[in-house]
Design a protein around this nucleic acid. Structure first.
Lengths: 214, 214
DNA sequence: AGACTGTGTTACCGCAAGTAACATGCATGT
DNA sequence: ACATGCATGTTACTTGCGGTAACACAGTCT
């Protein structure tokens, strides 16, 4: 048996799996994360047990679905992070890439950030609590790696890079979530404000007259 | 009718509501956010319909529960934020207060950050997606207000303060979530690393030899 | 032909959210 | 004293989901 050569059946199964994922994608994007397995099966033109044979349980399906989108988003973020420009420009490009993505496809974003749904007690599929939002964790780790590779942070730099990776990703996420809901300013302004924050403007700002500084 | 004077019945109902919330608290802290209404009712020594009369639906109960803990946490954060010290010390004290809280009561933390559970299709109670994590939003707004009151940020300062408020809260949250799961370092180190990030060390760091800067 | 495997179905279980419909203690108005 | 209301409590039910068992039908290999 050649392990690299895939049999026809394997390829057929993979193709089917992709079709099912695309159907699930349509339903989840239409109905939100509480889309039922029945609805997904109907969209795919089949019935429930097939979904369960392919993905185990709802958590498995959602994890597979999330993986696709997460991979796609991470690819575009990596591209922005690796662009030939100086540090500030890269940071702004990365922020802008992320914000553009969530702005263009808010439904995908909602699904990725709040995948913990349908939590029956028997639902051992997703394990909420251990990895709240896999996307955030993965982005944090990737950013940490880039920071650690590119910046000279002295002793303890690796750990510092990880803290910063997760912290910056969290900053981007929370600000983006809030911005997406309220739209208080343009995307460019948001990018600039966040980059300013990362560039130490918080520490550099002067106190307001009449009181102690923050 | 005096609107400020509460009748005996009102006071009794309020007391009962508090008792129910405390029972719910015990169950949620024991079983996680997927605790069933039946289990909560049993813990309180009553049956389901009473819970529904008091809180409408599961979302209402969880919202009330979250409000209690959120208020408590926000109070302690405000205290740290208002301490008589310089800016850096206050930032570190606030970070430390938050991290201590989530470290001491991780179950409460999990509940507050991932309240969207048991999402049946009929569950119109919580409206996931509109307000993902009420705690984060409230912390962001409060911090924004403090920043705007205390710092002189020039024109557009109010908007900048809101972006920063939500961004900093998100940074704290994501880093805390990651730290709570992996415990890669002590709390003090984490606080210091995050404060360093806010103080612009990212921009000030030198490039690594052999490649362009991040 | 007959066994095996992948794909599909119907019909069902268990369980949780949420809802009548009915019972009961207790204060009040006449 | 007695009926009226009202809050508080119950049992029993419906609905709808996740998940599974059991069965049915194609193609393929020996």
């Amino acid at each position: 048996m050649d392990t690299t050569q895939r049999t026809d059946q394997q390829r057929s199964a993979d193709r089917r799996r992709r079709e099912l994922l695309e159907a699930a994608d349509r339903v989840v994007l239409r109905d939100g994360p509480q889309a039922s397995m029945n609805a997904i099966a109907a969209e795919a033109g089949i019935t429930k047990p097939i979904l369960y044979r392919h993905f185990g349980d709802k958590g498995g399906l959602y994890a597979a679905l999330a993986m696709r989108h997460t991979d796609a988003l991470l690819d575009s973020l990596r591209a922005a992070l690796d662009a030939p420009a100086d540090r500030r420009e890269r940071v702004e490009a990365t922020l802008d890439t992320y914000l553009t993505a969530i702005e263009l496809r808010p439904q995908v974003y909602r699904f990725l950030m709040h995948p913990a749904e349908g939590g029956q007690p028997g639902d051992q599929g997703f394990d909420v609590g251990k990895h709240s939002a896999p996307l955030l964790r993965r982005m944090g780790e990737e950013l940490a790696q880039v920071i650690e590779e590119r910046l000279d942070l002295g002793p303890g730099g690796q750990q510092l890079a990880r803290v910063w990776g997760h912290g910056i990703v969290g900053m981007m996420h929370a600000a983006g979530d809030w911005w997406l809901g309220e739209r208080p300013c343009s995307r460019a302004e948001l990018v600039r404000s966040l980059a300013d924050l990362l560039w130490g403007r918080l520490a550099a700002a002067g106190d307001r007259v009449g009181g102690p500084g923050f």
